Simulated assay, not measured.
Amino acid sequence: MDGKHMQIGEVATRTELSLRTIRHYEEAGLVVPSARSQGGFRLYTERDVERLMVVRRMKPLGFTLEQMRDLLDATDRLDGAGLSPDEREGLLERVRAYEQDAAEQVAKLRVQLARAEDFARTLHERVERNQDAQAS
């Protein structure tokens, strides 16, 4: 990281999250601006953007704010130093559980998507049949 700070608008553009959503995640303790400008504006780093991207990816999979907070805590601690082997293994186990949950949610979403695509295809075929019948 080069230490570059970004204002919330740039972070919103990069993460495709609204300013309101970023502020909500800040209030929920998921991300805290790394600094404030002299004028009091929130300033974020690349690491803050990475945290918001984790949250953004977890949201459509149905993870709660508490689960997001727990995963971010585990990954923050894994990235830190001074862990005993037991602590590291415990944190890895927590992350593995989220990995498994995410994979299960993705599988469910794939089934839902396939059903939605089938439905849309059925409607399209019905429209086509009726247009062809009307043209005859």
Rank of each mutant, 00 (worst) to 15 (best):
residue 5 H to I: 04
residue 50 E to G: 03
residue 33 P to I: 05
residue 127 V to G: 07
residue 29 G to H: 08
residue 74 A to N: 05
residue 57 R to C: 09
residue 47 R to V: 03
residue 76 D to A: 14
residue 27 E to W: 05
residue 123 L to D: 01
residue 38 Q to G: 14
residue 117 E to A: 09
residue 53 M to A: 05
residue 14 R to V: 08
residue 98 Y to W: 07
residue 88 R to K: 14
residue 49 V to F: 11
residue 115 R to A: 13
residue 11 V to H: 06
residue 129 R to M: 10
residue 17 L to A: 10
residue 117 E to N: 09
residue 132 D to A: 15
residue 97 A to M: 09
residue 126 R to K: 12
residue 92 L to H: 08
residue 100 Q to P: 00
residue 58 M to C: 07
residue 109 L to F: 00
residue 1 M to D: 00
residue 59 K to Y: 04
residue 74 A to T: 01
residue 84 S to D: 04
residue 7 Q to G: 05
residue 69 R to I: 02
residue 109 L to E: 02
residue 77 R to D: 00
residue 116 A to S: 11
residue 46 E to P: 01
residue 79 D to F: 01
residue 78 L to H: 10
residue 114 A to R: 14
residue 58 M to V: 02
residue 130 N to L: 15
residue 4 K to W: 02
residue 92 L to E: 12
residue 62 G to P: 02
residue 69 R to C: 03
residue 44 Y to K: 09
residue 76 D to T: 08
residue 46 E to W: 02
residue 45 T to G: 11
residue 78 L to I: 05
residue 123 L to M: 14
residue 5 H to L: 15
residue 46 E to Y: 02
residue 113 L to S: 08
residue 63 F to L: 12
residue 51 R to A: 11
residue 34 S to G: 13
residue 132 D to N: 13
residue 106 V to G: 04
residue 76 D to S: 12
residue 108 K to N: 07
residue 2 D to F: 01
residue 8 I to S: 04
residue 133 A to L: 13
residue 37 S to Y: 10
residue 60 P to V: 12
residue 109 L to P: 01
residue 89 E to G: 05
residue 72 L to G: 03
residue 100 Q to G: 02
residue 35 A to C: 09
residue 128 E to P: 00
residue 14 R to L: 15
residue 7 Q to V: 11
residue 48 D to L: 10
residue 108 K to D: 11
residue 41 F to E: 00
residue 86 D to H: 10
residue 59 K to P: 01
residue 3 G to Q: 07
residue 36 R to S: 08
residue 130 N to Y: 15
residue 113 L to T: 05
residue 109 L to S: 05
residue 8 I to Y: 07
residue 11 V to D: 06
residue 116 A to L: 15
residue 65 L to T: 12
residue 86 D to S: 14
residue 121 R to S: 09
residue 15 T to S: 11
residue 21 T to V: 12
residue 39 G to Y: 02
residue 35 A to Q: 10
residue 107 A to Y: 03
residue 99 E to S: 12
residue 24 H to A: 11
residue 135 A to Y: 01
residue 41 F to M: 06
residue 78 L to Y: 10
residue 62 G to Q: 06
residue 69 R to S: 10
residue 124 H to L: 13
residue 102 A to M: 14
residue 101 D to W: 08
residue 80 G to N: 06
residue 30 L to T: 03
residue 56 R to A: 15
residue 112 Q to Y: 12
residue 121 R to K: 13
residue 46 E to I: 05
residue 105 Q to H: 12
residue 27 E to Y: 06
residue 46 E to T: 10
residue 75 T to Q: 13
residue 51 R to C: 03
residue 84 S to K: 08
residue 46 E to Q: 14
residue 71 L to I: 08
residue 75 T to I: 15
residue 19 L to T: 00
residue 27 E to T: 08
residue 115 R to K: 10
residue 16 E to R: 15
residue 72 L to Q: 06
residue 29 G to I: 10
residue 39 G to N: 12
residue 114 A to N: 04
residue 19 L to R: 15
residue 54 V to N: 03
residue 43 L to G: 05
residue 82 G to L: 13
residue 32 V to Y: 02
residue 34 S to V: 04
residue 102 A to W: 04
residue 66 E to G: 07
residue 56 R to C: 05
residue 54 V to S: 07
residue 131 Q to S: 11
residue 100 Q to Y: 04
residue 102 A to I: 01
residue 30 L to N: 03
residue 82 G to H: 10
residue 111 V to Y: 06
residue 21 T to H: 06
residue 135 A to L: 14
residue 118 D to I: 01
residue 38 Q to I: 07
residue 112 Q to M: 12
residue 59 K to R: 15
residue 6 M to H: 13
residue 25 Y to K: 09
